[in-house]
Computed example of a mutant assay.
Amino acid sequence: MKHGVAGVALAVLAGASWAQDAPEYSAVYRSCMESAQSTASMSECSAAELKREDARLNQAYKKAMAGLEADSQGRLRDAQRLWVKYRDSNCSMYYQLTGGTMDILNGGGCSLSMTKARADELEALQGL
């Protein structure tokens, strides 16, 4: 059953537009997903990884803000607020797309993927 649920989840996640580039996640996450035996446990793995990526995003945002002049800080602040609204709105669609339990994984995958990508983007700003 474990491989059946994981296979279906991966097939669904692979088909979602936000999962096209299949970003690298932590070893803890990969291990968690490999041992997950239900949609609920897979969701817990994603939630824990999202928490890690969200912390990384917040740290990258603070560092990026610290390296910018005041006018650029305002633009980044505005962009970040809009990005959060977009991520939340976009991923809410996946959380409610079919009405089934897979929506939990699809919504979580969307939030995780978008948060990781934004953290990567903010970290790249620090080098400019």
Rank of each mutant, 00 (worst) to 15 (best):
S89M: 11
G4L: 11
A47P: 07
G100Q: 09
S92M: 14
A124D: 05
Y95M: 02
E53K: 12
Q37E: 10
Q126P: 01
M42E: 11
I104H: 15
R77W: 07
Q73E: 13
L57W: 10
M102P: 01
A6K: 13
L76F: 10
T39P: 03
G74D: 15
A60L: 04
A40P: 06
E44C: 08
G127E: 11
W18V: 09
A48K: 14
A79V: 01
A9K: 08
A70M: 08
R52Y: 07
Y29A: 10
M33Y: 05
G100L: 08
M65K: 08
A79R: 05
N58D: 14
C45V: 08
M1T: 10
R75M: 12
M65S: 07
C110T: 04
S113T: 14
A11M: 13
G15D: 03
L13F: 02
S35W: 05
C91I: 11
K116L: 12
G67F: 00
C110A: 01
A6M: 04
L10Q: 14
G4I: 09
K63F: 09
M114F: 15
L105C: 08
L57G: 10
A48P: 09
L97I: 13
G109V: 04
A48F: 07
H3G: 12
A70F: 02
A6W: 05
A11R: 14
A60T: 09
S31P: 06
G109K: 08
G4M: 04
A16C: 06
Y94F: 14
Q73M: 13
S38P: 01
K51D: 13
V12W: 03
A14C: 00
C91V: 11
K63L: 14
M1H: 12
S17H: 01
L122R: 06
A55M: 09
T115E: 09
V28P: 02
R81G: 11
G67H: 05
T98L: 00
G109Y: 00
S72Y: 10
T101D: 02
G107I: 01
L122W: 01
E49W: 05
D103L: 11
K63H: 14
K116T: 06
M93V: 09
A16G: 04
Q126D: 03
L57N: 13
R77I: 01
R56Y: 06
V5Q: 06
Q73V: 13
M42F: 06
D103H: 13
Q37N: 03
S43R: 12
K116A: 08
S92R: 15
S46I: 15
G15P: 07
Y86T: 01
K85D: 07
M114W: 12
A9W: 02
L128C: 06
T115A: 04
Q20E: 13
N58A: 11
Y86F: 13
L50T: 06
R118E: 08
G74H: 14
L50K: 01
V28E: 15
N90F: 11
K51W: 01
S113W: 06
T39I: 12
G107K: 07
T115F: 04
T39V: 12
I104E: 15
V84T: 09
L68V: 02
G108Q: 14
E49S: 05
L68K: 03
A117F: 00
A60D: 12
G7Y: 00
R52I: 03
A66T: 05
A9N: 06
M114R: 15
G15E: 00
Q37M: 07
Y94M: 10
M102L: 12
Y95W: 10
N106Q: 14
P23M: 03
Q80A: 06
M42G: 09
G4F: 07
